[in-house]
Design a protein around this nucleic acid. Structure first.
Lengths: 397, 397
DNA sequence: TGACTTTTTTCAAGATATATACTATGTATT
DNA sequence: AATACATAGTATATATCTTGAAAAAAGTCA
């Protein structure tokens, strides 16, 4: 029941513009000639559309490449300073705001610490708005050059103008973050769950690069997943898809902080691991504690590996991805030393056919990936509908 | 990273043709005027394209509707005899072949029993080919009028020209069913997993109608799911997505017939239920046995409901569907009497936000839905690329 | 019969991608 | 240094497409 769209002949141009821009963005500097092969468009059309894009300053020429005995090809690339994207990471311990150019080079950064339990919405909103001001001032970028602001937050984000957020760990219940931010800024906003933005970062620039069907598993204090179907983050009916951490893996088992019993998070979430090992919880030292557990070969870790493998196997059985990326600080700590064992545990709990076609790899991006991924939300929109970009006039100066 | 396509101006017509045909197919008899509202196309284009479709005999006029004081509208509809679709259900006990017109009226049917364990590929292929012959003869439909043959089979079906099938229960390992069938027929073939075809039937004509994000859970002897993302069956990297039955719900628990431990199927699969109740396995009476268990309020059923609810909750957490359809004969037997309890169990094991937006309903189609759904594979292709339909000349006679 | 209403078709206009011919810009050869 | 050659990119003519406006069609109502 896939529904085709497209109506007028004008949409064609818009679509082909997007096709070319996307190719240029992801493939990098390329000549018009190569673009014909890359996109399937005729040379004439490539010439036409790139002409438009050049005139709009969305792309720029980037040097020549000489070929044996012919006219050298002119390389084209996305104009990195055509516009900028701001990515915001709202985490348990901090609010981080970063400004990127279109090449995803970080141009400025602002960070605000949050006290444990100090997650009042007003405070977070103030930090975000202050951060936007700060990165603009630091980088000297004018607001008109900013294509948008992406925000990665914990919890479930309902898509819609208000961007209602439900985040138990923050004590946020139906918080209209989008609406609140809009009172302080007129920049286009894209709010999404932080696990999804980080997943998109891994997909675009990290270990998920090039896959069309993938799952990025995020294991930190909490446990989540970002599901990629046909190259796009899958969000479901109300944008809450991917709540892997609270799927039941041992019905009736350990009590989870969500109140349920037998949740995966109650076994492989960082806090759950430490708790099972009988260690005191302290967010300042938990990373070191976990590393020590892994190093010492604690039996709790063996058990964790088993549960993690089974959890990954469930994802493979359900989604049949070509790639599974294990990320999040706890996931990386476990994975760096135990990836082979994790794979083995997954294999034992998975149907052979889907397992054999899924590769399990570690995430390649650090914790900053949440903000980076949030910024990709802006880029995603830019690549699709670059025509009426708000920063057009500003960047064309 | 959604990738836009579309190139030439000709694709526009093709796309709009598909848009209109789809609207006519799913909405039913409609006037050109209504189609403009339905599709967003201009009246002129609707007139143009429907003219083409009429000339090609793909659609036909279907009477008038008089309006108060104006020219009466001419109703248009898909020509039910423009072509026919054959659906094949390869089950554990039978091979069923049905021929449908485009209105999905069954015009002929052929059925062949399979002995338990008698699943040799050659036999199944013979039955399918004989069934195709039979339904064509019975209905008087010429082969040239058949748009294609959809086949629903157990196990994992790798998409590709050979349609490799891996079905443990059948003892099929990398069986190239597509290639084998092609030796006996030149009709276009569409092979897919039976749970997926049944899911598509429920999606198009049953309890899933109208949903864009849904999961159709199928509970019989085996347990599977059909995942609908954005209105389309999700297949994953190798078409094996939806293997819900072998996800672990109780790690280290009961041994499943797949060899794993703690699979969902080991708790809610029909055979597993009967086994847990200490009843002898007999495919002839298992349906009655299960019904009796449900009627008598066996504690095994209570436990099953708990596991089923948790399994559904996992689906809701991961996929955030707007609807869950419980189908399959065992699922329906359980659901008819215990849907409230099942919902309660699901709620207890699910995050509140996604649960609150998901409705859990029973399937509305009978066991024939596998063949019906297989036929929808043919229709799906027809609606997308009706231009060069192979049966065009035949049907235009 | 004639005015009016609503649906559908016709027609001219504007926009697009493509093929083909053509121009631009280099290297290789004489 | 001049010329031939090869490759990259552009301009033009053509066939399609969708659309808005006008026209036609086919009724009702007074």
């Amino acid at each position: 029941m896939a529904r085709p769209e497209r109506r007028t002949v004008r949409d064609l141009r818009k679509g082909n513009r997007a096709v070319l821009l996307r190719a240029l963005y992801f493939v990098g500097p390329t000549s018009r000639h190569e673009l014909t092969a890359l996109t399937g468009l005729s040379a004439a059309t490539v010439s036409n559309v790139t002409g438009d894009l050049l005139a709009d300053n969305v792309i720029v020429e980037a040097g020549l490449v000489d070929s044996d005995g012919g006219r050298p090809r002119v390389l084209l690339r996305v104009n990195p300073v055509y516009g900028y994207a701001i990515g915001v990471d709202v985490g348990e311990t901090h609010v981080r705001v970063e400004l990127f150019d279109l090449d995803m080079n970080e141009k400025a950064k602002a960070e605000y610490a949050l006290r444990p339990g100090g997650h009042e919405v007003e405070l977070v909103v103030r930090h975000i708005l202050a951060g936007i001001e700060a990165v603009l001032a630091d980088s000297g970028v004018a607001p008109g050059q900013v294509l948008g602001v992406g925000v990665g937050v914990p919890g479930i984000v309902e898509s819609g103008p208000d961007a209602l957020i439900h985040a138990q760990t923050f004590g946020w219940d139906s918080v209209p973050l989008g609406a609140l931010l809009r009172e302080g800024t007129s920049l286009p906003l894209y709010v999404d769950n932080g696990a999804k933005t980080m997943g998109q970062a891994e997909l675009w620039f990290g270990a998920g690069r090039g896959s069309r069907n993938a799952v990025i598993a995020l294991i930190g204090s909490g446990v989540g997943a970002s599901i990629i179907t046909d190259g796009v983050t899958y969000r479901g009916a109300n944008s809450s898809a991917g709540e892997w951490g609270h799927t039941k893996i041992a019905l009736g088992g350990r009590t989870c902080r969500c109140g349920g019993r037998g949740c995966l998070e109650a076994y492989i979430g960082a806090e759950a691991i430490l708790e099972r090992a009988g260690l005191p919880l302290d967010t300042a030292t938990e990373q070191a504690q976990l590393a020590e557990l892994v190093r010492s070969g604690s039996p709790v870790i063996d058990e964790t590996v088993e549960y993690l493998g089974a959890g990954l196997a469930n994802l493979i059985n359900l989604f049949n991805p070509e790639r599974i990326v294990v990320g999040g600080w706890a996931g990386l700590t476990l994975g760096h030393h135990l990836l082979t064992k994790i794979k083995k545990a997954a294999a034992e709990n998975c149907l052979t056919q889907p397992f054999s076609t899924a590769s399990i790899v570690l995430g390649r991006l650090g914790p900053d990936a949440v903000a980076l991924g949030a910024a990709t939300l802006v880029i995603e929109e830019f690549l699709l509908s670059n025509t009426a970009a708000p920063a057009r006039e500003a960047a064309a100066l």
